[in-house]
Design a protein around this nucleic acid. Structure first.
Length: 411
RNA sequence: GUGGCCGUAGCUCAGCUUGGUUAGAGCACCUGGUUGUGGUCCAGGAUGUCGCGGGUUCGAAUCCCGUCGGUCACCCCA
């Protein structure tokens, strides 16, 4: 038996897990302040939710899905992203009108793992549903930016684009296709293939992009409604102090996006995977899934990548207030009761799981970064314990009743 | 799916080029020095299928082949 986790997955231990907990706490607090309620859904869905929602032509659907058949013969897929799932849940819930939802959890994509790209990765996100208003786009972009700020990034760029909607995109795509066909000879093999299925993504190809500097941009073809929407998003972002850069080449990898598309780039980070979050508007998604027309905008933040880019190795161990040293085996029950009482009194306290030398118990106290030690010994019979402050190496004898207060005073 | 690099103690790694007696170091861990006192110091101690399989050889951690795993990059994306 080998004990390493499956390829592309990680066991996250302290201290790294402390960084995770911290990031998730920041996220929850932020979501609460912005008025997003938690939605908790399944981690797998009927395969067609993603096949239709995310889009048959996408890389994700074509080769990255963890699809399996359950014992009832249903085709299920481990979710490769959160949005399609949340929209499906909304459609099935009977909820009416605008809703602001937050979610977080693991996502799964079958790919070759590398730095910042895992087969199981963790995303937190929000979806602002049933509103087509540009204010919603701006708010969603803002919450992601604030999240990165609070986690500790100083170098974040918001790349922003609009890829139009059903009204104006066909015209743009026709022009783009014509342009790309002219350039066919200079395109790489992959791009020649994606030219047919999704010409937008050719612009995103790192190999071909240098040859396509004069390619037509989607923003120049926006219809009036999309233009107004995009302008309004920018005005609001400026007003709330979110710096952004217009990126006409920004194309997201999922088919459901309309109008606004954005990405957060960790610019100070030199690894290849510096896109730490992204999102956009998806006004046609609900209909694609067979529901009524429910516009929406959302984002997803990649926790793994954020912590990687932030250089977060995890915070220091949470120090104990007190470590209880048991002088002799016959006092262990007494000590255990003492510890239990202190914990109920709000003291962070622990003791060794088995009787060892006093020296070894002190060593354990030191390792646990305990502020103080209390010795349960002969003094206990007089209702007293010896307490030692490990930082100052001073010790004194106090009454048992004073112990909790003494321990807290060392924080 | 394609390519580069790497698999030796719990961890980080040396040893491999030029095969040769019991495979090493640092850190960490345990015990003792202090029979009720940590962090420092001193002394001692435990720990290895040298990733796995096969081949060459009198002899393989070392050379060859295969395989698995990890890692980084491409594609794509969070």
């Amino acid at each position: 038996m080998n004990f390493s986790p499956p390829k592309g997955t990680d066991d996250i231990f302290p201290p790294a897990s402390r960084a995770w907990r911290r990031a998730l706490m920041i996220w929850e607090s932020l979501a609460e302040r912005y008025g997003y309620d938690l939605v908790i859904g399944p981690v797998f869905e009927s395969t067609e939710i993603f096949a239709r929602g995310v889009g048959e032509s996408t890389e994700v659907v074509q080769k990255q899905m963890y699809t399996f058949e359950d014992k009832g013969g249903r085709s299920l897929t481990l979710r490769p992203e959160g949005t399609a799932s949340v929209v499906r849940a909304y459609l099935g819930s009977g909820v009416q009108g605008e809703v602001k939802l937050a979610y977080s959890g693991p996502m799964f994509r079958y790919e070759r793992p590398q730095a910042g790209r895992r087969r199981q990765f963790y995303q937190t996100g929000v979806e602002y549903l049933a509103t087509a208003a540009p204010d919603a786009d701006a708010e969603v972009i803002e919450i992601g930016y604030r999240f990165l700020e609070e986690v500790g990034f100083d170098e974040v760029e918001v790349a922003l684009n609009s890829i139009g909607d059903g009204e104006c995109r066909p015209a743009y795509l026709a022009v783009l296709r014509a342009y790309l066909n002219d350039k066919r000879g200079t395109l790489c093999d992959d791009s020649v293939r994606t030219l047919e299925t999704n010409p937008l993504r050719v612009l995103d190809c790192k190999v071909c992009a240098p040859h396509l500097t004069d390619a037509p941009n989607a923003v120049d073809f926006l219809c009036d409604a999309c233009r107004l929407h995009f302008d309004a998003v920018q005005v609001r972002l400026g007003n709330t102090g979110i710096p952004f850069r217009l990126e006409p080449r920004l194309v997201r990898g999922l088919d459901y996006y309309t109008r606004t598309a954005f990405e957060y780039i960790a610019t100070g980070f030199d690894a290849a995977q510096n896109a730490v979050g992204g999102g956009g508007r998806y006004d046609g998604l609900a209909e694609t899934l067979g529901g009524s027309a429910v516009p929406g905008v959302g984002l997803a933040m990649g926790i793994d990548r954020i912590l990687l880019a932030a250089g977060e190795d995890g915070s220091d161990i949470v120090p104990l207030d007190l470590f209880v040293v048991v002088a002799s085996p016959e006092r262990r029950e007494t000590a255990a009761r003492f510890v239990s009482d202190l914990r109920r009194a709000g003291v962070r306290v622990d003791m060794a799981p088995q009787q060892r030398s006093v020296k070894s118990q002190f060593r354990a106290a030191d390792r646990r970064k305990a502020a103080g030690v209390a010795i349960i010994g002969d003094e206990w019979d007089q209702g007293r314990v010896i307490v030692r402050n490990l930082a100052t190496s001073t010790q004194t004898e106090i009454s048992v009743e004073e112990a909790a207060e003494w321990a807290k005073s060392n924080r």
